[in-house]
């Protein structure tokens, strides 16, 4: 058995990323054949298929727990039967599984009220992981899960019918925080547009309501109960604008050693925030101010700025140029 190299692992990760981000219409006959195979493994006759262009409100009564339990026992058997070293397993996790699992891909924007865990079956990271590892004889089903994922469509099984959501028509992303990660993100519209024209909004991988992208405003933020959504809306507005409109408390200000601007540290509802000024002039002739969330115990603007670069304040004070 040959052991794939780093490049193989990276190319397998990229291939599954393409699957997860694909905007091609689903291959319906292939998806239906694979899903019918999974019904058979669960002791069920092939279902009828109901294709939809965007995620509907799924009615209760789905068999997701049954299908997911079988999937989990399959992955347990696959892991138990793998004849590879721990080093190789760790390499596949690091290069393939974790970057994909840490990515925020379009499937995460679909809401399954009846069974929130069902979303994880449409994560490609576990499929990509097994794609890098040798085949385990005697474990049925992984090929069917893989075919269903490649054919496209997010599906929810019911006893007589399987509801399948076709792939979206448009997906906007940006690189994620760690190597190899990709997150759904769009600043001026829905990050994902389905084939019926409806959309889903996302900010740096977080699903957000439309107002966060279309009309973020301090009063909407004040009324929003979810901290993640508040933060996304503030980041989209820009911390300086948000701070100008709210009664945030200025903890301290100090000259930035790296350029001729000021560092300002604020206390806000959820966060301590450091506002810094870019050294480089923007298109419109101004210099961009931006805010960075710093640890809650930050008390000094220069210490907070030093923390953002992972160095001490005395070192940061020696900064000679910041652009």
């Amino acid at each position: 058995m040959s052991v794939p190299t780093r490049r193989d692992a990276a190319s397998i990760r990229e291939e599954w990323l393409r699957v997860a981000l694909s905007t091609e219409p689903a291959d319906r006959p292939e998806a239906e054949a694979a899903i019918a195979g999974l019904y058979r493994l669960n002791g069920l006759p092939p279902p009828g298929f109901h294709w939809v262009s965007s995620p509907p409100e799924f009615p209760p009564g789905a068999l997701t727990r049954l299908f997911d339990a079988r999937r989990r026992s399959m992955t347990r058997d696959l892991r138990a039967g793998l004849a590879v070293t721990w080093k190789r397993r760790e390499q596949v996790l690091r290069l393939v599984r974790w970057p994909l699992a840490g990515s925020r891909l379009p499937f995460r924007l679909v809401v399954y009220d009846h069974d929130p865990e069902w979303r994880d079956v449409h994560d490609v990271s576990w499929l990509a992981e097994f794609d890098c590892l040798p085949w385990v004889p005697g474990v049925e089903g992984i090929d069917l899960w893989e075919r269903a994922a490649r054919a496209g469509g997010w599906w929810v099984p019911y006893r007589d019918v399987c509801v399948v959501v076709d792939r979206p028509r448009v997906v906007h992303t940006q690189p994620g925080p760690a190597d190899g990660q990709v997150v759904v993100h769009r600043e001026d519209g829905p990050a994902v547009v389905y084939r019926d024209g409806s959309g889903a909004y996302a900010w740096r991988g977080t699903a957000v309501p439309p107002w966060v992208i279309e009309r973020p405003a301090a009063d909407r933020i004040a009324a929003e109960p979810e901290p993640e959504i508040r933060l996304a809306a503030i980041q989209h507005m820009g911390w300086p604008e948000y701070l100008d409109q709210t009664a945030a408390r200025l903890i301290g200000a100090a000259p930035d050693p790296g350029n001729d601007a000021e560092l300002r540290l604020y206390d806000t509802r959820d966060h301590r925030v450091l506002v810094v000024v870019n050294g480089t002039v923007e298109r419109d002739g101004t210099r961009r101010r931006y805010g960075l969330v710093v640890p809650d115990d930050s008390a000094d603007p220069v210490e907070a700025a030093a923390w953002t670069y992972g160095i001490t304040a005395p070192l940061y004070k020696q900064l000679v140029r910041r652009t």
């Binding site: 070192l315 900064l319 000679v320 140029r321 910041r322 652009t323």
Partner: peptide
């Protein structure tokens, strides 16, 4: 294209930051 292309880039031996990257 709005950056001043005639700007001479200083060559320095201290700590410098370029946006989200610090070099020391």
């Amino acid at each position: 294209d709005h950056l001043d292309r005639s700007l001479t880039i200083p060559v320095l031996d201290g700590i410098q930051a370029q946006g989200d990257l610090l070099v020391m």
